[in-house]
């Protein structure tokens, strides 16, 4: 029998995502990919996978997954509450996020609500045994491609695993929650900041913007003060000849409210883009929930690049600093042997 994780109850919007389908935007193919690159990278590292391995992106509420393999190591990153391991021979046991867990055949991983963020991630050690589409496993449901059958997971799906049992070794966890940073969301002016009046640009960086209910993998619509275009909307001030749309591009259509374009964004578009979210802060955007507010703060391209490099260093440090995860209150025999403490106890 093929090793698999079987979806016994579907969540609300769970798709497989890697770091994106790069290289085909010229053919109109959106990149898709994880909304929170940092969390997926950490989940993969906890599972012992390369960063670009596809994991499960969990939105709002996670699924129940039955282990149909001898064993599997899963890593969870993100605020899931509550998450339980339910087995045939033991009562349901709550488990922590931001660490890996060894699961055995017949156990069910019950992923709860995603709280305080819009996304959480699950990676499996060794990854899923699915064929990439155009070089990537990122799911893009609008074209029905990538991931599992090109769509979000449904009850009855069996996600094939690349390994039928987990490699030996300890479970690991994050030493401390990763610091995504607080304060204003850093943006770089452009590509079309000159399509906005000086007043409009000031409004953009001096106002609070609230995430509306219209926020999904394609884009996040904000509510707040309207941003004035340089030329009146009636005279075409909100139209440009379509050009490429980078991740985090902030387009401002005629209504004057900003829309940040995210993973499933279209490749080209005809609205002026006042600024672009710096890549360091895109994972923060990927975690925003309706009702939360942000302030935008402009930095230069070079500053944004530097911020991203600093974040990568912190991310690699966090991965190098993973610690062995022990069950609370339990004795870690393996560690005791490693440190020669058992010998000491016996012979003293």
């Amino acid at each position: 029998m093929t090793a698999a994780l079987k979806v016994v109850r579907a969540g609300l919007f769970d798709t497989l995502q890697d770091l994106g389908r790069m290289g085909f935007m010229a053919l109109g193919m959106p990149t898709a990919g994880a909304m929170d690159r940092v969390a997926l990278t950490l989940a993969n590292a906890l599972a012992g996978n390369p960063a670009n391995t596809a994991g499960l992106e969990i939105g709002v509420m996670g699924p129940d997954l039955l282990v149909e393999a001898d064993s599997v190591r899963v890593a969870l990153v993100g605020p899931l509450s509550p998450t339980l391991i339910d087995g045939p021979d033991a009562p349901p046991k709550p488990i922590e996020s931001d660490r890996s867990h060894l699961l055995k055949r017949g156990q069910t991983l019950k992923l709860g609500m995603v709280e305080g963020s819009s996304t959480a991630y699950l990676s499996v050690s060794g990854g899923f045994a699915l064929a990439p589409f155009m070089g990537s496993l990122s799911t893009y449901p609008r074209a029905g491609v990538g991931g599992f059958d090109g769509r979000k997971l449904a009850a009855g799906d069996a996600l094939p695993l690349a390994r039928d049992h987990a490699a030996p070794g300890d479970d690991r966890k994050l030493a401390a929650a990763f610091d995504y940073g607080a304060g204003p969301v850093r943006v770089v002016w452009g590509p079309q900041e000159d399509h906005f009046s000086a007043k409009g640009r000031r409004t953009f960086v001096e106002s609070d913007y609230r995430v509306s209910r219209e926020a999904d993998r394609m884009g996040i619509r904000f509510e707040g003060p309207t941003i004035e275009h340089a030329v009146s909307v009636a005279k075409g001030g909100a139209d440009i000849i379509s050009d490429g749309i980078a991740p985090g591009a902030i387009q401002v259509p005629g209504a004057g409210l900003p829309i940040v374009l995210m993973a499933d964004r279209q490749t080209v578009g005809g609205y002026p883009k006042i600024a672009t979210v710096a890549s360091v802060d895109l994972p923060r955007l990927g975690r925003l929930l309706p009702g939360q507010t942000v302030r935008f703060h402009a930095v230069s391209v070079a500053e944004a690049e530097e911020l991203r490099r600093d974040q990568e260093v912190r991310l690699q440090r966090a991965i190098a600093g993973f610690v062995v995860a022990r069950p609370p209150g339990g004795i870690d025999l393996a560690r005791l042997y490693e440190e020669n403490l058992i010998d000491g106890i016996v012979y003293e």
Binding site: G190, P191, P247, A304
Partner: peptide, 9 residues
């Protein structure tokens, strides 16, 4: 034209 720190036009 700047498109953040991952693209330009």
């Amino acid at each position: 034209l700047s498109c953040g720190d991952t693209a330009f036009t």
